[in-house]
Amino acid sequence: MRFLFLITMLVLLPLQAHAEGVLPQGTRINLSATAETELANDEVVIYFQVDKEAADANAVRQHINKVSAAIHKRLSMEKGVKLKTLSRNMQPVWKYPKNSPRARTGWRMVQSEQVTSMDLDGLPKWLDAIEAEGAHLSSLQFRINDNTSRQEQERLRLGAIAEFRDKAKEITRGLSARSFRIISLNSSSHAPQPVLYRAEMAMAARASVESSPPSLSAGEGKLSISVNGEIEVPFTDFSAQ
């Protein structure tokens, strides 16, 4: 057994020494490249709330259900509109008389909703419908649609890699070498912040298309992809003369 162990050690030690002694086959250089573009925001997200306060809890629920159902029915007729309930919360309303225990005077419910669509031209009439049914606009934002963003990021990533390779070629030629190897390559992306309008500004867009155009601009967003990595250029002997 000891003899077998010694043979194993003799075999492994040279392999380990070789692995630890691996040296670069050339000069290693860090590089980075970036590709970017500006895209028009092509999606709108509307946030609104339905709220009610009353002494009777059932009356509160019925009002919230009626208003939200009417808005859902109205917007469900629009093509490409997605409606999502974000939250629904009911809490008691308390009165605090001086020198007396608190007393419940009623109930208050708030239901938050979200509308998403790529049909920016339909924005004014949706805001009208939401307000007309008794809901309150919280805010709206313009942004780049996820599918649009993903497709553009893939295109930019290929462009950034091509620029990375071009830089590597220039350095390789500058070092009088014929080729290079990419040792490592990583990429990162930067997405723009959505254009956000608060309720007061957003309601300025409620005017109908026939009377006047919306006063809000969807704006643009800048997408960028960066790649960074390390290349290895074969060693070259240069004359010191």
Results as ranks from 00 to 15, higher is better:
Arg2Tyr: 07
Leu13Arg: 03
His18Trp: 05
His18Ala: 10
Pro24Gly: 09
Thr27Tyr: 12
Ala33Thr: 02
Ala35Thr: 02
Asn41Gln: 07
Val44Gln: 00
Val45His: 07
Phe48Arg: 06
Ala54Leu: 11
Ala57His: 10
His63Val: 12
Lys66Arg: 15
Leu75Phe: 01
Met77Glu: 13
Met77Val: 07
Lys79Glu: 11
Arg88Ser: 14
Gln91Thr: 14
Pro92Gln: 08
Pro101Cys: 01
Arg102Ser: 14
Ala103Pro: 03
Arg104Phe: 04
Arg108Asn: 00
Val110Ser: 11
Glu113Asp: 13
Gly122Ala: 11
Leu123Val: 10
Lys125Thr: 14
Ala129Tyr: 13
Ile130Gln: 06
Ala132Ser: 15
Ala132Met: 12
Ala135Met: 05
Leu140Met: 10
Asn145Lys: 01
Asp146Glu: 07
Asn147Thr: 14
Gln153Pro: 04
Arg155Met: 09
Ile161Lys: 03
Glu163Val: 05
Phe164Glu: 07
Phe164Cys: 01
Arg165Tyr: 08
Thr172Val: 06
Ser176His: 07
Ile183Ser: 01
Leu185Pro: 03
Pro194Asn: 11
Val195Pro: 04
Arg198Ile: 02
Ala205Ser: 14
Ala207Arg: 10
Glu210Cys: 03
Glu210Met: 08
Ser212Met: 13
Ser215Ala: 13
Leu216Ser: 05
Glu220Gln: 13
Lys222Arg: 14
Leu223Ser: 09
Leu223Gln: 08
Ile225Leu: 03
Ser226Met: 04
Ser226Ala: 12
